[in-house]
């Protein structure tokens, strides 16, 4: 295969179809849930990836999105709340021939399982983490989540949430993630484009998917989805391209030379050359961090989507396997009898 980005995962011998990736289980999300769109996109894009279906595993925790593995005709595990990254780490580090995907939500990944998420990212295990962020707890019926906005009125915060939300992309950068992207459930083309890049990334890829919960937090991302408002609200990042958006690309992101901050400005002939060119591969995380939090947290205006950061760093599982090989190279394949005997022995004769 061209490029062979996942050299250890076997390829499917034949052309696959989306239907092959659909399990026989009836999908049971609420009608209108954004999860349907993500499921359809994943089922539609995996055949194109061309990996052997039996070498793909979906692991999830608990929450609405964590039902995902049941609907994929691959290997899968629906585990317990927050622990999917840990379980997937064990699987991926013991089996470098697998393509391991984690499906999680904002509560699962950032609240009860926050510790596992940050450590998976820092280790750079070969995991593709799809974080369905709907900024609410769905399965437990509508409590605020760690990404809910301050002041959010929910069943557990009738007078408004007192908490400052996490910005998952910023958090991931702080956790030394090597691949961080943000996309929208309803933008199939963009979603698939991001998934395609995540799938072939060596190491942990975190894809934050803004996902609509039409029951408990309907319209949370409406401003990014409505065609009229999206033009001004969404900044589509493309590596190597100037960061411009709005009608006819009339707005752009520049770095304020006095403060170092990123600013959104109308693009003019005078400042066009100053518009920041997106470099996802920049090893210094500073600009990616600034971009991850460029949006106004209340209005979501100026939300960058796309691949914020994609840098090369050796992945944990390949290196772990490498140490095993190196040990055999250095000491020979383990000799059990010699190990058990050790160096200090004595013999008792008849």
């Amino acid at each position: 295969m061209p490029g062979d980005p996942l050299p250890l995962v076997p390829w499917a011998g034949t052309r696959q179809s989306a239907t092959e990736f659909k399990s026989d289980q009836e999908v049971r999300w609420c009608p209108g849930c954004g999860d349907y769109a993500v499921l359809a996109a994943v089922q539609g894009f995996l055949p194109e990836l061309g990996l052997a279906r039996e070498n793909i595993v979906f692991v999830s925790g608990i929450g609405c999105s964590s039902r995902f593995p049941y609907y994929m005709n691959t290997y899968g595990m629906h585990s317990i709340h927050g622990r999917a990254p840990a379980i997937a780490t064990g699987l991926a580090t013991s089996r470098t021939d697998l393509s391991v995907w984690v499906v999680t939500g904002d509560g699962d990944a950032l609240s009860i399982g926050g510790n596992h998420l940050i450590h998976a990212l820092r280790r750079n295990v070969n995991l593709k983490i799809l974080l369905f962020n709907n900024r609410i707890y769905g399965l437990t019926k509508g409590q605020y989540s760690p990404t809910s906005e301050t002041g959010k009125i929910t069943r557990s915060t009738p007078m408004g949430s007192l908490e400052t939300p996490f910005n998952p992309a910023s958090l991931a950068i702080g956790a030394e993630a090597t691949f961080i992207a943000r996309t929208l459930d309803s933008d199939r083309h963009h979603l698939v484009d991001v998934l395609r890049q995540a799938a072939v990334h060596q190491g942990t890829a975190l894809v934050e998917i803004y996902q609509n919960c039409n029951i408990f937090n309907d319209g949370a991302f409406a401003v990014l989805k409505d065609k009229r408002s999206a033009q001004e609200a969404v900044i589509r990042l493309e590596h190597g391209k100037p960061i411009r958006f709005g009608h006819a690309g009339g707005k752009g992101v520049i770095r304020d030379t006095a403060t170092g901050r990123l600013r959104v400005v109308p693009v003019t002939a005078g400042n066009e050359a100053d518009v920041l060119v997106h470099d996802a591969h920049e090893t210094d995380p500073g600009t990616a961090f600034a971009l991850s939090r460029l949006a106004d947290p209340h209005t979501l205006h100026h939300t960058p989507i796309g691949v914020l950061r994609q840098v090369e760093r050796p992945d944990y599982d390949t290196q772990m396997a490498g140490q095993l090989d190196a040990a055999v190279e250095r000491d020979g394949k383990g000799d059990l009898a010699a190990l058990l005997a050790g160096t200090d022995t004595w013999t008792v004769k008849e």
Partner: peptide
Amino acid sequence: PVDCIYEGPRKMYIQPDECVDC
């Protein structure tokens, strides 16, 4: 949620490849 219902002169139409079965 995925904007896949198109308007014809006399009837609405669902794009089957864009529909996500929700």
